[in-house]
Structures are given as structure tokens and as C-alpha cells.
């Protein structure tokens, strides 16, 4: 019987996990253990709902509601001096509960603190663009759309950014295989030569251990290469590879190793 592979997550899986293995958890601290973060959280929670918050590896993580994101980012930028949106993207939890988790990584240069603002959206739901607050979100939201298919409302130019405009599929979804689907496999051939050329050019060779049986005869005989189809007897002459013909080349001096000077101190 063929082993069952789940279709909702086709990424690499650990092939063996101990039955009793319990992974440890990165320690999470209460927000009140850091006064700067505690004050920040106070300000945020006085205006918006905060679902969860903790400190993980020195950064505060705040879970909010999806509809509040524009307001929260405006608040932390204007009042809490988190002036830079360093990074934003999504995490695919479709296999677990059909949601995406969106995170915004913020930096305050005056307080030297970083916080991460997070929320979940349902599959197919759009997020609010924060491009008006942080111009950097312009490109990150496009990247998020490209990679996950999450659209941003009020975005001026919601198009793919990394993949070509006529690409199909969203590569970072867990359902998308690493080596691409059927469309990806033939993308360049279809585009340049047309579908009829598929037979001539042939499929991609994705097997890293692939060895062409007919090629390997010569490949394995380094220094004794023979033309394709030659019957190998075992007493072939060595084929010496030279970059110049024996008789020398018209008007070109041949490199003479003995006459050359080797500089061994690079810092001379």
C-alpha cells in the first residue's frame, strides 16, 4: 500500500519522530516584566482589542483583530514612535484551521524596541493596506499577494511582484510543491516556443542524482573520453585535454610553465 501523503501540506516532513517526543517551547514572558512594553500595550489596549500578548525573545507580540490593523499601526507610529515597518508577511495555517496569520514587525528607533503585531484572517479574506502609513508596505503587500494570494484593500497597484504577471499559483502556500506544478514546469517552454515544443525539449530533469546512462560512459571516464556509441574495450589511449593545439597557434605564444614566474606573496 502506498503511504498516505496529505495534500494540504506537501512540504518536506520529518521522516521519523519519536513517539514520545515533546518539543520544548521558547520561553514566553509576561508583558508586565518589561515596563516599556507594558506602557505600549496599555496604550494599544486602551483603544483597541488586544487578544493576546507576550514577550518572546526580547520582542513583544500583540494579537489584534484584523479590522483594527490600520488604526493600530497609526497609533504605534504616531504615539509610540514605532516609526519603521521593517517587515510584514503571512504564515500559512490553511491546513490547520483555514486561516492565514499576518505579522507586522515594527521598530522604534528612540526606544530601541521591536514589537510584532499579528492577526489572523480567513482564507479568501482581504487585509487592509497600510501603504498610506508606511510606504514599505507597498511592496511587502504585493509580495504577500504574490506568494500567498492575500489581497490588500486600497492598495494602489495590487499585482504580482516577484513572479511574472502571467504566473499561476501562489508559491509559498503549503499546498504548492517546492519544484512547482505542471504550469511551472513548462512555463518557459510554453512561453518561448509554444506547447508543440514540449516533446522536443523534453521534461525538466529534477532528480539531483540523475545520470544519463549513455552519458555516464564518457562522464565516468575522465581523461579517457570516447565518442558516444564507441565500444569500450578498456585499453583506450588517454585523451589529454589541452587548450592549444600541439603545433602551436599562428601568432600566439604558447604558455610555458617553466618560464613563468609565480608570485607567492599576494601582498607584495
Amino acid at each position: 500500500m502506498r503511504a498516505y501523503t496529505p495534500k494540504d501540506n506537501v512540504q518536506a516532513k520529518a521522516y521519523y519522530t519519536d513517539r514520545f517526543y515533546v518539543s520544548p517551547q521558547v520561553p514566553r514572558h509576561d508583558v508586565s516584566s518589561d515596563e516599556v512594553f507594558a506602557a505600549d500595550l496599555e496604550t494599544i489596549s486602551s483603544k483597541f482589542t488586544v487578544n493576546e500578548s507576550y514577550i518572546e525573545v526580547g520582542q513583544m507580540v500583540v494579537y489584534i483583530n484584523a479590522s483594527d490593523i490600520y488604526g493600530v499601526l497609526e497609533l504605534v507610529r504616531d504615539e509610540l514612535s514605532y516609526t519603521q515597518l521593517t517587515e510584514m508577511s503571512a504564515i500559512d495555517w490553511l491546513a490547520k484551521d483555514n486561516t492565514f496569520e499576518i505579522f507586522y514587525q515594527m521598530l522604534s528607533m528612540t526606544k530601541r524596541k521591536r514589537i510584532r503585531i499579528k492577526y489572523s484572517i480567513q482564507n479568501g479574506q482581504a487585509v487592509d493596506s497600510v501603504n498610506k502609513l508606511f510606504r514599505s508596505a507597498d511592496w511587502s503587500e504585493r509580495e504577500m499577494f504574490d506568494m500567498f494570494g492575500i489581497e490588500a484593500n486600497n492598495h494602489p497597484f495590487m499585482k504580482r511582484i516577484l513572479m511574472p504577471y502571467d504566473w499561476q499559483g501562489h508559491p509559498l502556500l503549503k499546498t504548492y510543491p517546492l519544484q512547482g506544478d505542471e504550469f511551472a514546469a513548462w512555463y518557459e517552454v510554453d512561453k518561448i516556443y509554444g506547447k508543440e515544443a514540449r516533446d522536443i525539449i523534453g521534461p525538466e530533469i529534477r532528480d539531483t542524482a540523475n545520470i544519463d546512462r549513455y552519458d555516464s560512459e564518457r562522464f565516468a571516464r575522465l581523461g579517457f573520453e570516447q565518442p558516444k556509441g564507441t565500444k569500450i574495450t578498456g585499453d583506450e589511449e588517454p585523451t589529454v585535454q589541452t587548450y592549444q593545439e600541439d603545433g602551436g597557434v599562428f601568432l600566439i605564444t604558447k604558455f610555458d610553465k617553466d618560464a613563468s614566474k609565480i608570485v607567492d606573496d599576494p601582498q607584495r
Binding site: M163, P171, Q179, A184, V189, I201, E204, I205
Partner: peptide, 18 residues
């Protein structure tokens, strides 16, 4: 030559396909 270490959806597996 072959796509090298980038055996992914986004790379052409060898420019001799083109």
C-alpha cells in the same frame, strides 16, 4: 548548467533548455 542548488519552481533547469 542545470539549475544547480536551486531545484525550485522558479528556476529554469539549465539554460540549454532555451
Amino acid at each position: 548548467n542545470t539549475g544547480g542548488m536551486f531545484n525550485t519552481y522558479a528556476t529554469v533547469q539549465g539554460c540549454d533548455r532555451i
